[in-house]
Design a protein around this nucleic acid. Structure first.
Lengths: 362, 362
DNA sequence: CTCGCACCTGACACCGGTACCACATTGCTC
DNA sequence: GAGCAATGTGGTACCGGTGTCAGGTGCGAG
């Protein structure tokens, strides 16, 4: 029966209780060095009796290893990141590591603060889904690296930063999804979730430019959309891309706007979950039905998508696997098995259901 | 410009670089005690130059405070817990605390291991959504308490454990939802997500018994269902409650079974998100429409529920607020403002949409 | 019987902070 | 001009582990 000391016993107290030296108790409990079976027994018994548990802080102090990984994501309440964090967490637990999770609300300053917290707490490695757009805005990441902390990027690569990045092939996934829409006969395809700017860029190159200066995944998805258009020789129309705040409400507004034009989209490609629900609301208030009137494909599959009427064709992201692979890549760096840093690309799954149909004749 | 030492500088190095004593540097950087403006300036400059950051581990060692909270939930990938964790995380960040999140996969042994990890890492407090059913299975929680670590329960109270618990009024929310169904004229109401047992209990008291020996929230929700039935004098029918594994697949099976009986339910009350989607699949494959054929109310609102056809009437849980309140309650205990431990009950929001209609005449 | 060696064990320095306290210096009073 | 308080600074013990190392013990060989 463990004692009820409100302050946990130290190794010295165990040693005293067992009537041995501090080092002997430490060797026994720490599992290193040699201890005779007899004393070992005594120490173990005393430790049991006092309810001894090693102070991980003290251990980290002297070994310089914290057995903790830091994880930085934009929003832990977002199911996508929830899956990623769980993957990282499960994989690191298997190696005896715990995870310190920091949520940045997609704010670069918070991300910088988060990196500093992790440096201060001397984590053994960091997985980060960074909001940094390029090497210039990734100074905090370089700083962590200069402190000798292994880092791995997840979900979002940062161009110009030479780190392992575990990502999904956003561009190809988007290209294939949009190609699927084109194959079904669509030529007017709306792109929902664009760059968060107030003014709609008129020229295609301005848009690409803009996208490349915003969130990496968004830029890749836009590129994939453009790729598919190019493949089929469809001319890009700036009116078919959403701009402004990335919220469900704004998606409703933007899709409604597209729908109200003279030449409205006959299909919608939505790059995030809230973009899908926003688009759906806009369709409903316009009295339009999915598939019959407007086809739709979205990113981030969910059990809900399968029970919609009609069931939604979606792109499923391997969230758990993303996390697991990121943790594995990080451990490889920690273990010094450093293959040159590179990109680990995971495939998405195109889940075909029933939200795509040929465009309505007009 | 900070130096690129791969091993971070210590306070002694800063002191040496500034040409002052270690204590003076410590007082300056630690922000305690007195230092003359001149030396302070020198120390600050040296720290800046070397890129000094205090080692939080060492600080925790000597102060005995880690500025870290532990959070234990069943599954961080579940959006419900995602919201709770984010609430805790935001609220503690505001107080300068970080959070160590452990996911237990709803397994009591993993939960015990998680508690031990948190004890070892000397967190200053723990928020736990425990899988423990009663005081007897909550030994690990008592153990943490005996180590002097403040604890607060979230989402799930544990009967017999004298700790603050921040929960939602599951019983009342369920009772009201089911009453809503009854008011609409329903008398055969299926309960989706029951006790995870293989054999269907025939008697009502056996069921209650069983429920009370399973997950707290589930038991409360079942009680609320029963309360509403009692209020209206509707007799309980064991065939209308789901049993077995709590998975979407099993929900599909169980709802299909109910639907295939002679006297099928005309309404369904689903106590979790996956129970809702499971029920929806079962309805679809039976060729039944929501509202027109079978009414439905579910727990855990989601943006998806609003875009379903018809939009689903749901019970929204205040996930973020649950986390924030839990953190606040924990800080109150940490600060020693210990009002006697009690239950903090947050309200749910009944979001009425269009999935409830009078039962079909037969 | 003595010496040497293998075998155990405990002392102690260290990790990087915090915080107490002693002491040196300055300036003021009487 | 001596005495003393206020002020500023550095020495040092401590937190609870890890890990090196010196030295004591017991045994076998010569």
């Amino acid at each position: 029966m463990a004692s009820d000391h409100s302050v946990p016993p130290t190794i010295s107290e165990v040693a005293e209780a067992a009537g041995v030296g501090r080092s002997t108790a430490a060797r026994t409990l720490g599992g290193y060095g040699y201890v005779s079976p007899e004393l070992r027994e005594r120490v173990l018994a005393a430790a049991e009796r006092l309810g001894y548990r090693a102070n991980a802080l003290a251990r980290s102090m002297s070994t310089g290893v914290s057995q903790t990984l830091g994880v930085i994501v934009a929003d832990i309440a977002n199911p996508f990141f929830g899956g990623v964090v769980r993957g990282i967490s499960d994989a690191s637990r298997a190696r005896g590591f715990d995870t310190l999770v920091l949520s940045t609300h997609e704010d670069l300053d918070e991300e910088i603060a988060a990196i500093n917290v992790l440096i201060d707490k001397r984590v053994d490695g960091i997985v980060v889904a960074s909001a940094a757009l390029d090497a210039a805005s990734a100074g905090h990441i370089e700083q962590a690296r200069s402190h000798g902390i292994p880092l791995v990027l997840v979900d979002r690569a940062v161009p110009g930063v030479d780190l392992d990045a575990v990502v999904v092939d956003n561009r190809t996934a988007s290209r294939e999804a949009v190609a699927h829409l084109i194959d079904a006969g669509h030529r007017r395809i709306g792109f929902v979730w664009g760059p968060p700017v107030a003014d709609r860029p008129r020229r295609r190159r301005d848009l690409i430019d803009l996208a490349s200066r915003n969130l990496w995944t968004d830029g890749e998805r836009l590129q994939g959309y453009l790729d598919a258009l190019d493949d089929e020789g469809i001319v890009f129309d700036a009116d078919l891309v959403m701009v402004g705040e990335k919220t469900e409400e704004n998606a409703v507004r933007e899709v409604s706007r597209m729908l109200a034009t003279d030449d409205p989209p006959t299909a919608l490609f939505c790059t995030e979950n809230d973009a899908v629900t926003g688009a759906l609301r806009a369709l409903r208030s316009a009295g339009l039905r999915v598939a019959d009137d407007v086809s739709l494909i979205g990113f981030d599959d969910s059990s809900w998508a399968a029970v919609m009427e009609p069931p939604l064709t979606m792109i499923e992201q391997p969230t758990l696997a993303l996390g697991v692979r990121a943790a594995e890549a990080l451990f490889a760096v920690i273990d010094g098995e450093a293959a040159p840093a590179g990109r680990h690309t995971l495939g998405t799954r195109f889940v075909e259901r029933a939200s795509v149909a040929p465009p309505r004749k007009r």
